[in-house]
Nucleic acid binder design. Structure first.
Lengths: 349, 349
DNA sequence: ATCAAACCCCAAACCGTTTTGGATGATGGG
DNA sequence: CCCATCATCCAAAACGGTTTGGGGTTTGAT
């Protein structure tokens, strides 16, 4: 591996102390000496050993992400890649490492305890929070800075989080459809143990209630967000006696499935049936090209990753700081998948 | 944080030496004492400090993944999430941490040097290799165990890798289409600086040549693997005077775009036009349900992650071992997206 | 010339483990 | 009874940095 600090010091005829100070920008070292040291360090390709450094300083210089895999579904949430890419940018900028643990959700508590107890991270990001998520009190007890991506309704103690305004976004989207004359709006949501899905549903329900439209349980589906599930949900709803004229959907993949089902049914998206989806702005799943394909509530998950990381780093360096929270609004992007509700065909025809 | 070894030793009236040995299973400690120690450790929730441990042992107990983000496209390869989930399982089993660095591809060399120089990882996984990838000689020089996910043609020195048989898979898929009578086969590939894309192309070309079918440059596209690009490529080819009757596609997302284009053109997939895609078996992008939607060359990227990690861990613990290589064959799954070539419509009609 | 304050530098302790090189006492063969 | 062996344990030295607590030299004011 590389050269060590002691060796570097020796080669310069200096003490390790001075070399360390020179490199870390302490004032009590002659500028000429500092220059010599930095030159030598560069030339000899010196890099401080991370483990030694963090042992000495007590800071791990690393942030942990625990990504849960639910046993039943065995699904890896596709947004992780982009979120992590965003967070990674922030960490790199700050000189932090990112360590990731993939873990079945029944072992999660154990993993958190381990990470903290063994001191391998200075802070943690909590992914995919559920209602009254037990991880939040756990991490609070463990006394480590953490930030939740999303929120957990039912937790009354304060904690740090970054979330998007799912409720408002989905309420607006629903109202948009109502304004276009739609009354039967199919709702294809993620699994409703996830907090975000619960909030989206209440946005949908509130908007309907606000206009006095009765919510129909037959038009509401909650499932893992895959193309197949979107397809099946839409197919089933379209087969109802009084099928929906519009769909509100929780992810692009679901929406692609819905589109597929419309196609199978010989329906034209945007004319016969409208679709609004949430769009995480994933790098590999863009919503159309110059002109957006789907009308969508959009919020970049990558940007969320960046900002979450920045907030957490802030918490880590200012231990005394009170919890930070940030609520990002979502944009409503008008695409080609929505249009006025078609004239109601009287069944009595 | 947690309790320290010294404290644990003190509370037991033993020396740190003995406690360390007891916990690590060394023979020179009385079994009664060992039992006392382990009990106390459990009760006091002792966890050895990772950084101190690895400083003392010289092993980081961590594997690094460097995931490159290409400047121009800013795309995060969607397979990373699943690959990492698979690798994570292996690391967890072996007690290793996984550290991930997201980095623009022009800074990659620097990041590798850093990771190795600062001793923060014991081994590295190289993602998304290109032709004559400079990272391979670099890592060889740095003298750290590494494993390439994929291969890099043009590198003549031996190195460890795990790859799927892209060439054979795509050759077989092409032959399958030829057997069905297709002669105009559109090829929608990933960007052909990636080694896997190059191999797939040669599989396609070889199969065509083997049957004496002339490859038409107008039927070959190379682009980032997104739905939009699949859509555009297929749309363009379908507009040709002599359009393809089949498509061979490099990813599910591309294939979904192709399907979309077929739909727009009023063509029925599997009857009017056939489609074969490669399927990484991503957890969130399943190829249909019970019955596969697309005919596909399938290979689980998650399994690749598991096996890659296992191989790398093997290399890490046996430093002297010669390079390991593993070539996984891909399955050809027959779905509903392929069928016999339609009768040639004579233009002179 | 004197003395305090800057300025620069260093030796040594420390972070929490593992590991080396004994030390101690019990055991057992001759 | 003596001495080698074995079973158990421990003190101290690593690992590679940072940080504490000085200690010489200059500098500058008196």
């Amino acid at each position: 591996m590389g050269i060590t600090l002691k060796e570097l010091a020796q080669s310069l005829g200096l003490s390790p102390t001075t070399v360390s100070r020179a490199l870390n920008g302490y004032p009590e070292v002659n500028e000429d000496t500092r220059w010599r040291v930095m030159e030598a360090a560069r030339k000899l390709n010196y890099r401080p050993n991370t483990r030694a450094k963090s042992l000495a300083t007590g800071r791990a210089q690393a942030i942990g992400h625990v990504i849960p895999i639910s046993d039943q579904h065995e699904i890896v949430n596709p947004v992780f890649a982009d979120f992590i890419a965003g967070a990674g940018e922030s960490y790199a900028r700050a000189g932090y490492d990112m360590t990731i643990s993939v873990v079945a959700d029944d072992e999660e508590a154990q993993v958190y305890r381990d990470l903290v107890g063994r001191g391998s991270v200075d802070g943690l990001i909590v992914h995919a929070p559920r209602q009254m998520d037990p991880r939040i009190p756990l991490l609070r007890d463990l006394g480590i800075p953490f930030l939740v991506h999303g929120r957990s309704s039912g937790v009354n103690q304060p904690y740090s989080w970054l979330d998007i305004n799912n409720r408002r976004g989905f309420a607006r989207a629903t109202e948009f459809l109502l304004d276009l004359g739609h009354r039967r709006i199919g709702f294809v949501n993620g699994i409703e143990v996830m907090d975000f899905a619960i909030r989206r549903r209440s946005g949908y329900l509130d908007a309907l209630a606000g206009r006095g439209v009765r919510a129909d349980p037959a038009l509401m589906v909650s499932a893992e967000m895959t193309e197949t599930n979107g397809y099946r949900a839409a197919r089933r709803m379209l087969a109802l006696p009084d099928p929906p004229t519009a769909f509100l959907v929780s992810s692009m993949l679901l929406a692609i499935g819905v589109r597929h089902a419309l196609w199978d049914a010989g329906l034209h998206m945007g004319r016969d049936v409208s679709v609004i989806t949430h769009d995480d702005d994933l790098s590999y799943l863009k919503n159309g090209d110059a002109v957006p394909l789907f009308t969508a509530t959009r919020s970049s998950i990558r940007e969320a990753g960046r900002q979450s990381a920045d907030m957490l780093l802030d918490l880590v360096s200012n231990a005394t700081e009170p919890p930070l929270t940030r609520l990002l609004e979502v944009d409503l992007i008008i695409g080609e998948s929505t249009g006025p509700a078609p004239q109601r065909q009287k069944d009595s025809a």
